[in-house]
Design a binder for these strands. Sequence first.
DNA 1: CCATATTGTTCGGAAACCAAAAGAAGAAGA
DNA 2: TCTTCTTCTTTTGGTTTCCGAACAATATGG
Lengths: 167, 167
Amino acid sequence: MEDRAVSCLIALRRVLSAADNNVRAVAKATGLSVQQMIVLQIIEDTTEITPMMIARRAGVAPATATALIEKLAQMDYVSRRRSESDRRKYWVSLTDAGKTALHSAPDPLHQKFSEEFALIPDYEQAMILAALERVANLVSTPGEAPGADQPHVLEMSKPIDAEKETV
Amino acid sequence: MEDRAVSCLIALRRVLSAADNNVRAVAKATGLSVQQMIVLQIIEDTTEITPMMIARRAGVAPATATALIEKLAQMDYVSRRRSESDRRKYWVSLTDAGKTALHSAPDPLHQKFSEEFALIPDYEQAMILAALERVANLVSTPGEAPGADQPHVLEMSKPIDAEKETV
DNA sequence: CCATATTGTTCGGAAACCAAAAGAAGAAGA
DNA sequence: TCTTCTTCTTTTGGTTTCCGAACAATATGG
């Protein structure tokens, strides 16, 4: 009877595999690495976020996050703004170029899904949405959920430009 | 209208993110790299498969597939058997150790899902399964689907042992 | 037998990643 | 104020992963 759970997991793995291939394709199309894309998406989700939080969400070591952010900053896809409440950290956010880059490449999976989803009868659409949200709530751990640790609002732009000449 | 498709994709991305974090955790627990785990799973799915097919399914370059297989063979997780119908290629399959390794680590997502899924009322379980399979069919491309390109049955074991002394 | 294609490998370099140590800034207590 | 401890980020050094390109071996079709 927990047979059905197994079937679910199998279906899930098919979806996962397709999605994985997809991100790679999209990444290649944008000229970004997969990890860079993930980081950009994390930043977009939160609008503003610190390196440590990026590391936690992306599941990489802090050192790796530093390198990723530095790279993205060099490409001018993200901007950094020193926090004033805690001057050790800084807030990373997407530049316009970053947003553009993130959405420039067509996403085959997104498109395919949207197209075919539109053909499905209404009641079934609703069913699928409900099921997906149910599953998302089942599996998503609070640790990586969005929402916590928002930046203070009162910090004004004080750009991190000192290290502009980093090689 | 197509609002619902967007909500679906958002939910899907939550699931994806959770799953991604999960594979990393499991990989770390097994001492395998993520890519190695994926390859092992591909091999298990097909029982027997050639390097090129592995490369295509895993979405990596042939050179990478070679390296991955070589590594897994060194760990004695996979065995190779030269094809007789086409002596360029060979069939890769899982050893018992490989199967064990692949399933040794507890899978937090799998567990969590199974547990919570069991608590869901019957009709909703059925609904979720149907929805997941629907989605899987929507997104999965035939190219990476299992089933095609099976090995000929008549090839007997002629191990690739020549390179046993590879450093 | 000779092109051409396919399969897999080797090689060299680029990039990703991490652990550990270091640096810089906050927090807490005397 | 002056420790001392903690947190956040970076640097360093070294490992691993991955790919492109050139290559060898085999197949296939004239």
